[in-house]
Amino acid sequence: MNNFEDLQNKWQNQSEISATEDGFQSLLKNVKSIENKQKTGNIVLTLTIIILVSFLIYVSGYKSATFMLGIGLMIGSLVIRIAIELFSLKKLRKISFSEDASTFKEDLTTYYSFRKYTHYLVTPVAVFIYTVGFIILLPLFKATLSNGFYIYILCSSVVFLVVFSVFLYKQVKYELFKLKQLQLRD
């Protein structure tokens, strides 16, 4: 019967897995592209915030309280959701991959437990507030827009809500699965 040393020997003699120059160049390209993407992401985020703030300043001249309430709820829920997402990302990036595996697993479990509250509480409330804001705006849209455009807005928003909900559902399901796996006893 072969013993463990025999298995170890076979393991270490697996076909040549060696580093290649091409492999390194592709890795280096990838590293640089990630750094560039992070810079682009920051620019896009700054621009989004500038556009949102400008839009709010622009519509603040609009005297309708209903309009302000509707648009305020929609933008407000969106901003809160984005802020929480950014906070989560910051938390995730803080987890050090060079810690020992037990500490790392603990940190990752804490992170996904925090995400559970975001998914079960913050996200549904944000989607609900966003929908309420939109519904408040509907009579205004009907009064000021052409019938065709009104129907277009109505239909596209329903499609958007369904697509967004499916996306969220998948994300929540995946993250909860990860948490469950992390909490499995070794």
Binding site: F97, S98, D100
Partner: peptide
């Protein structure tokens, strides 16, 4: 040791169905 830690943790974090 440092690289092994990063590698083990990267593999641990890659939980998928």
């Amino acid at each position: 040791t440092w690289i092994y830690r990063i590698c083990v943790n990267t593999c641990l974090a890659e939980i998928r169905r």
